Simulated scan of single mutants.
Amino acid sequence: MTGTDVTDLAEMPGDWQRALAVVAHPDDLEYGCAAAVAAWTDAGKEVAYVLATRGEAGIDTIAPDDCGPLREREQRDSAAVVGVDTVEFLDHRDGVIEYGLGLRRDIAAAIRRHRPELVITLNHRDTWGGSPGAPWNTPDHVAVGRATLDAAGDAGNRWIFPELADQGLEPWNGVRWVAVAASSTPTHAVDAAPGLDRAIRSLLCHRAYIEVLTDEDPEQYVRSFLTSATGQASARFGGRPAVAFELFGR
């Protein structure tokens, strides 16, 4: 125990080979868990990214038709920094993603395509953090996170979305865990230290977004943000900087 009522974070399972990360926008993974992804790819594991949108509504000063291709390029560049070569986009509209059968079907199809043992997503709850007055989460994050948790089961049931089998996507019931990054109730963690410098470089690839988000020097902003974020869980992880996850078994 750490203190009187806070449980230490367990090590994330390592007995898997393929992971699929499913999030709403470019930069969601870089703000959330790129240091863990770097550690996994270093260990020879395969990680693919699926993004529901291209982040086209994310920069007020750039029109969506120009912003989408720009943010897609930044996302592919940032993924490559941490050893991820496969980045797919589902082309839902940024800012107005709707939780429902269409989103579940698209994510279930991606899971059947990639056949992961571990699925990763971002905080699906209404707020960031569990304390009173915590910042409100965005509808896109909530919809995609919740749909990903549901689609992990959908992917293994041939009678849910049977049209996917007609498209050559046979059921995949091999998902063993869904890991939620940026959860207010984490249970597990990955040592962030080995991948932290690459995580910083990965987030810096989203320069167009960062430059309108802050007046700080981009590198100083990114380093400070990720150092702080990975330090928050360190007391529950043996003093090591950590990327924390809430892990759901299947």
Rank of each mutant, 00 (worst) to 15 (best):
P13N: 09
E88Q: 10
V142D: 03
K45F: 05
R54E: 04
W136D: 14
V119A: 09
I160G: 00
I97F: 04
A48K: 07
G153V: 07
D166W: 02
L103Q: 08
A36S: 13
E219R: 13
S224A: 15
N137H: 09
P13R: 14
G44K: 02
A109H: 08
W16R: 06
R115Y: 05
I120D: 04
G32L: 10
A208E: 02
T61F: 07
F245K: 07
A24K: 09
R125C: 00
S131R: 12
G55R: 06
R104Q: 09
A34I: 02
E216A: 14
C33H: 13
F225H: 12
D215K: 04
D8E: 13
L29H: 02
D65R: 03
V119Y: 11
V243D: 01
A229D: 03
E211C: 08
P186R: 14
D77E: 14
T187M: 06
T121M: 04
D27Y: 00
L9Q: 10
W177N: 03
N123A: 11
Y99A: 11
R198A: 15
C205H: 09
L90P: 09
P218E: 12
R250F: 15
A34W: 04
R54T: 09
L204V: 06
Q17Y: 01
A235M: 08
A181P: 01
A24F: 08
E98I: 13
D66N: 07
P64V: 05
G129K: 06
V212M: 07
G129S: 05
A235R: 07
G231S: 13
E46R: 11
W128S: 08
L149E: 02
D28G: 08
Q232M: 14
A35Q: 04
T61C: 12
I59D: 06
